[in-house]
Amino acid sequence: MTHYDQTDTLEARDLTCIRDDRSLFSELSFTLKSGQVLLVEGRNGSGKTSLLRILCGIRQPDEGHIHWNGGDIYRLATGFNAVTAWVGHKDGIKLELTARENLVFARSLGTPSGLDIAEALDAMELGGFDDVSAINLSAGQKRRLALARLLVTRSPLWILDEPFTSLDTHGISLIESMINKHLVDGGMLAVTSHHTVTLDSNDITRINLSA
């Protein structure tokens, strides 16, 4: 299976984020290496989502830099997009398309992992829903379909904003084992979650934005 480059590094230096004239966080620095997890904690409105959006490049920090393997991510631009996968609050799923069509489209927007669409659906326990319109899926199933994107594309850096929303305990453990495998393969993860995340890895950096 896929193994990521062990030397990959994401480095954030002195990040500052100002939203509506209010400083959410300032001079935040951390480094994320292969196999490591960044767990972003904090109260509602403390800037968790903003931080993740800055990390994946949707939003620019008001101050500071983010480097991927030494290069500024805004200079790398689409090159950085090729190594990241983002699952945000919104699923990013087209309700009028079937589960399979959604994944085929997602795969064409990234680097294919080599995993078959059917295999990815099976892994998310969505086997048999291939040709079902996403509109007919339950909220939890939609969430799993959104997360199945991570399986069909090959991205060393996963950035997940509340991945466990609307999942039941079984769904959560499914995603946790998917994440564990990603980390064992040498991937990295930046995540926010209201649920406690149980991961095999001990290499977890915690950032509390409310502190």
Partner: peptide, 12 residues
């Protein structure tokens, strides 16, 4: 539905 974020972050 959030598809726009995904387009924005595509390597193309």
């Amino acid at each position: 539905d959030g598809s726009l974020e995904q387009l924005l972050l595509s390597p193309h």
